[in-house]
């Protein structure tokens, strides 16, 4: 097809960086799922036209600094407490879209109590839970969701259930709570999965805007630095291992 050219003009535009992302270069490592998930959040907020009425709560961990990338109002919470912060914000601002963005160390370890109780109270918020089975920011330690046998800096022989218990399936747990209306598990390791995940995220936000209780969306994610693999190998490893323990799909939708 030599000689044919695609004209660079608006009518031919298929995909561009959403304007709700700031110009800041993300601090995430190359290939990190957080970058893709941050982008999906920005795209969904922009598409819903709620950038002026959305308040995000960031955790402690790699995504603490998500506020540098998405151009909305943010609160940076103490480790694990994002759901408590969000509960108050939403009750004081019932007309706003309020969401948390938390990793597995934040939500499923130190913040289990706050997360479960926000779910149980049926707060009208969306909880975005990024599960990469490791503490990324502190350098790849074992988290509650680390897979059996998985080597981390604090489980150098591999996770052993007699020492560390079992991978924590907290999405399954919150699905049992009456205050939660939507629980879904998604991933961004392929383009198809990412497109599906974006639809699920949009649905979660729409349910929160309609005050349907908690929307809980888990992203099964990679941490190539923590896992000590290339980003591409991490995506493959996620498909072969993480998705066995944490299969994607809706866990609850009422």
């Amino acid at each position: 097809m030599a000689g044919l050219k695609v004209e660079i003009k608006k009518e031919n535009l298929v995909y561009k960086r959403t304007e709700l992302l700031t110009d800041n270069t993300m601090h995430y490592c190359p290939g990190c799922s957080h970058g893709t998930i941050n982008k999906l959040v920005a795209e969904v907020v922009a598409e819903l036209g709620i950038e002026e009425s959305t308040i995000g709560i960031t955790p402690v961990g790699c995504s603490a600094f998500a506020y540098n990338y998405i151009d909305i109002d943010w609160i940076q919470a103490a480790h694990g407490r994002a759901c408590a912060v969000a509960s108050a914000v939403k009750r004081l601002h019932p007309e706003k879209m309020v969401f948390t963005y938390q990793g597995d160390g934040d939500l499923a370890a130190i913040g289990t109590g706050e997360s479960i109780h926000a779910c149980n109270r049926g707060e009208n918020i969306t909880i975005i839970y990024v599960n990469n089975a490791t503490y990324g920011m502190t350098g790849g330690q074992m988290s509650p969701t680390t897979l059996m046998g998985m080597k981390t800096t604090t489980s150098p022989q591999g996770r052993d259930s007699s020492l560390h218990g079992y991978p924590f399936k907290i999405a399954d747990m919150v699905a049992h709570l009456d205050g939660v209306s939507y629980v879904t598990r998604q991933s961004v390791h392929t383009a198809a999965a990412t497109r599906k995940a974006k639809k699920a995220l949009k649905k979660a936000f729409e349910k929160s805007l309609a005050n349907k209780g908690v929307s809980f969306i888990e992203f099964v994610a990679t941490c190539s630095s923590g896992w000590k693999m290339s980003p591409v190998a991490s995506n493959k490893w996620l498909e072969d291992n993480m998705l066995q323990a944490y299969p994607v799909g809706d866990l609850k939708d009422i």
């Binding site: 308040i55 408590a84 706050e114």
Partner: peptide
Amino acid sequence: AESEVASINMVYGGASC
């Protein structure tokens, strides 16, 4: 709240607003 830890972080959220 479910604990004093949650209470003070709810206060943090409300105060942030």
